[in-house]
Every structure is written in C-alpha cells, then in structure tokens.
Amino acid sequence: MPKKIIAGNWKMHKTAPQTAKFLDELISKLPFTEAQVVVAPSFVNLAEATALTKNTKITVAAQNMHQAEAGAYTGEISAPMLTAVGVNTVILGHSERRQYFGETDGNLVAKVDSAMNHDMTVIFCIGEQLADRNKNNHFNVVEYQLRDGLFHLDKKFWKNIVVAYEPVWAIGTGETATPEQAQEMHAHIRGVIAKSYGADLAKNVSILYGGSVKPENAQLIFSKPDVDGGLIGGAALQVDDFIAIINAI
C-alpha cells in the first residue's frame, strides 16, 4: 500500500519568525494521523525548521536543490548541504521551476540522481499546461515528463520516489481538477509505472495531487483510490487550513 502524504510547499513565503510561529502552532495542534506530514520552507529556514520539528512526526523538505555536489554555482544549494542540516526530502521538477527558471528534463535527471546518491526522498512534480489538456494531449505530456525524469532509475531507488501530479492550470489559479480528473490521471500515472517496473512496485508508489487543494475539496479528492495525498500550496500557509487538509486524508 502506498504511504499517505500531505506536503505543504511554502514557496517564497514566511520569514524565520513566521516559520517558527507556524511550526510551534502546527506541532501543538497536529492531530493523530497515519499520514506523513511534510513542510517545505525556504532554504534560509530549513535548519531552524528541522530543529523545531525534531522528535515530531513532521518531515522537513527542501523546495529544490542543485545537481552538483559543490562548485561555482552562485546562489545554489547541494544535496550534502541539505542532508548536513537534517533535510532528507526534496521537491524537484515543480512547474514554477520549469517555467520561470528553465529547468529541463536533463537538469532534473541529474538532480534526481544526486538525491538518490544521498539516499534522499524526492517528491517529483509533473503536470500539463491548459493548452495540453485542451488538445487532449495531457496524458502524453505527463507520461513523457514521468519517463524522462525518472525511468532511468533502477527499481531499487523507487522506494525514495513520490510522484506529485500538478496540472499547471490549477496551481494558484483557484481552478481545481475535478476528483474524477485527478483519479483518471493518477490511474494513468500508476499504469505507466506498472508497464516499466511492474504492478507490485506501482501499487506502492505514493502519487499526490497538487493544484488549489483546499479544506473544502480535499476530502473528495483524497477519496479517490489512486490519490495518496496532496502537495499543497496556498492552503498550507495557514495552520488551521493545513490541519483540515491533514484530517481529510
């Protein structure tokens, strides 16, 4: 069975004091849950976040990382830097990284490999643009992103892979894929994985939905059999909203 996961991607939000306040409140209010709860603060707040969540059930993730171990890459952060402060999970391939920072499938293969070399967990993001869906090409786009970014991996590494399906047209727009649309794509993703790696592996891969998940719609989305949780954006910035989404799983 795949692990249930609720991950909050904070993007470029929250100062150090705001991070501490949020986590203190989240820890005090966190309900009992078998789901894994993940928060992804900005780079400058990762060390404090890992310290604050030590001995809790909250996992701290990075929002991105560079593929090189070290080097003349001004402004970048490497896997060894993350693991040294206790961060062992990273989000890779988010559509905002692809769109605004020109990340390519080649970049992402190298980043995934670096994460695997350091035994990190990768939340790997894939998703189509609205134009792709309007042309009925969304299944192909998502399959190519999945294959190009992850299918070079040996089977043994998939224990460290979480897939996050985020239709780009639903990120930060207020638009949300219907529960049926989410299930349809998640089932497709699981089927693509099964074709290359076998049904046993595919049925154990966590596939998250991201794209304007809110307390109001979370339960319906999470009720679908191939939706194993969510990668949450704006609603993860408010403690009560985030807890409501955790409760929905």
Rank of each mutant, 00 (worst) to 15 (best):
Thr19Val: 14
Thr19Met: 02
Thr19Asn: 11
Thr19Tyr: 01
Thr19Ser: 14
Ala20Gly: 00
Ala20Gln: 14
Lys21Val: 02
Lys21Leu: 11
Phe22Ser: 04
Phe22Ala: 05
Leu23Tyr: 12
Asp24Gln: 14
Asp24Ile: 01
Glu25Ile: 01
Leu26Met: 12
Leu26Ile: 12
Leu26Pro: 13
Ile27Asp: 04
Ile27Glu: 03
Ser28Arg: 10
Ser28Pro: 00
Lys29Ala: 14
Lys29Glu: 13
Lys29Thr: 09
Leu30Arg: 01
Leu30Gly: 08
Leu30Ser: 07
Leu30Glu: 00
Pro31Lys: 03
Thr33Tyr: 08
Thr33Phe: 08
Glu34Phe: 10
Glu34Cys: 03
Ala35Phe: 11
Ala35Lys: 07
Gln36Ala: 14
Val37Thr: 12
Val38Ile: 15
Val38Leu: 10
Val38Glu: 08
Val38Gly: 06
Val38Arg: 05
Val39His: 12
Val39Ala: 12
Ala40Ser: 15
Ala40Cys: 15
Ala40Trp: 11
Pro41Asn: 09
Pro41Ala: 06
Pro41Ile: 02
Pro41Gln: 09
Ser42Ala: 15
Ser42Asn: 12
Ser42Leu: 10
Phe43Val: 13
Phe43Leu: 14
Phe43Cys: 06
Phe43Glu: 06
Asn45Trp: 02
Leu46Gln: 07
Leu46Thr: 06
Ala47His: 10
Ala47Leu: 10
Glu48Asn: 10
Glu48Tyr: 01
Glu48Val: 13
Ala49Tyr: 05
Thr50Trp: 00
Ala51Asp: 02
Ala51Thr: 11
Leu52Asn: 03
Thr53Gln: 04
Lys54Val: 01
Asn55Gln: 13
Asn55Val: 00
Lys57Tyr: 00
Lys57His: 08
Lys57Val: 09
Ile58Gln: 10
Ile58Lys: 09
Ile58Trp: 08
Thr59Val: 15
Thr59Ile: 14
Thr59His: 02
Thr59Asp: 04
Val60Ser: 05
Val60Cys: 07
Val60Glu: 03
Val60Asp: 07
Val60Met: 06
Ala61Met: 02
Ala61Ser: 14
Ala61Phe: 05
Ala61Lys: 00
Ala62Asn: 04
Gln63Leu: 03
Asn64Ile: 02
Met65Gly: 02
His66Gln: 01
Gln67Asn: 11
Gln67Val: 00
Gln67Leu: 08
Ala68His: 12
Ala68Glu: 15
Ala68Met: 09
Glu69Asp: 13
Glu69Pro: 01
Glu69His: 11
Ala70Gln: 13
Ala70Cys: 06
Ala70Gly: 06
Gly71Ile: 01
Gly71Asp: 03
Gly71Cys: 09
Gly71Phe: 07
Gly71Val: 04
Ala72Cys: 12
Tyr73His: 15
Tyr73Glu: 00
Tyr73Phe: 15
Thr74Pro: 13
Thr74Asp: 10
Gly75Pro: 07
Gly75Ala: 07
Gly75Phe: 07
Glu76Lys: 14
Ile77Arg: 11
Ala79His: 08
Ala79Asn: 07
Ala79Cys: 15
Pro80Asn: 11
